[in-house]
Amino acid sequence: MLKLADRMVISFCAGVSASTAHTWTTIRTGADVRVMTRKSVDDPGRPPGIVLSAATSFWLPVSPKRVFDFLRDENSRNEWDILSNGGVVQEMAHIANGRDTGNCVSLLRVNSANSSQTNMLILQESCTDATSSFVIYAPVDIVSMNVVLNGGDPDYVALLPSGFAILPGGTSGVTDAISGSGGSLLTVAFQILVDSVPTAKLSRIGCNS
């Protein structure tokens, strides 16, 4: 489970940074949102097709600790995560991976009235220190997760992670990470599969969505 979470974080960072090792095609960029696409072919760690990544950064007049605690708390998840579909999110597994109580890998289950989501779990890793914090998550199906928990190879579980990176930043540009006061620079990035056919062309309607 930790190995799967580690790959999830690496995949998220690759989707935001668009390094030369992970080639993305920029279809929209500006002061508000950057949108990129990538073709996923013969990659057992990603679903096949065209993956779209949308990312933006903005400042919040809220301390980094408060933002981090809100985003990682499963009880407040239905206030911002469309995957919860307004349902109750329950933590099924919790693995601590740091001294801070916020440093952990969690396996979440959505108890939703929508029957189509009963086979979906959410893998999440959260991490925080004095310099930055992140909350990264990805939906996984129960069958794949059971394979991993029973000793199966996590490299063959398809993941499309989304998440948040939080940097401390006061209103005057002076950071105050120790006291947790001041504001936060929040980067939000989402990845979705827009077409299961890698050779498909992304329509203008899809871009606007």
Score class of each variant (00 low, 15 high):
D100F: 11
V110I: 10
L107I: 10
Q124G: 00
V88T: 14
V143T: 15
R99L: 14
N75V: 08
S84C: 09
T118A: 13
E74T: 11
S116K: 14
G87W: 01
S112V: 05
T101A: 14
H94G: 08
N150K: 07
D100S: 14
E79I: 01
S112R: 05
N97Q: 12
V143S: 13
N111G: 03
G87T: 03
G98E: 07
Q117H: 11
E79V: 00
I122P: 08
N146G: 04
L108C: 07
W80D: 06
S116W: 07
Q90A: 12
V67I: 12
E91K: 14
D73M: 06
R99K: 14
I136Y: 06
S84G: 05
G102F: 00
T128H: 09
N97V: 13
R109N: 02
V148I: 01
M92A: 13
N114K: 09
S144Y: 00
N114F: 05
D141A: 08
T131Y: 04
V135N: 02
P64Q: 05
R77D: 01
V135Y: 00
G86E: 05
I82E: 11
N150C: 05
Q124L: 00
G86M: 01
M92N: 08
S144F: 06
S133I: 02
N119M: 04
R72N: 04
L108P: 12
W80A: 04
T101D: 15
L121D: 06
R109Y: 06
F70K: 11
A138D: 04
V89F: 09
D69I: 08
C127S: 10
H94N: 12
D73S: 11
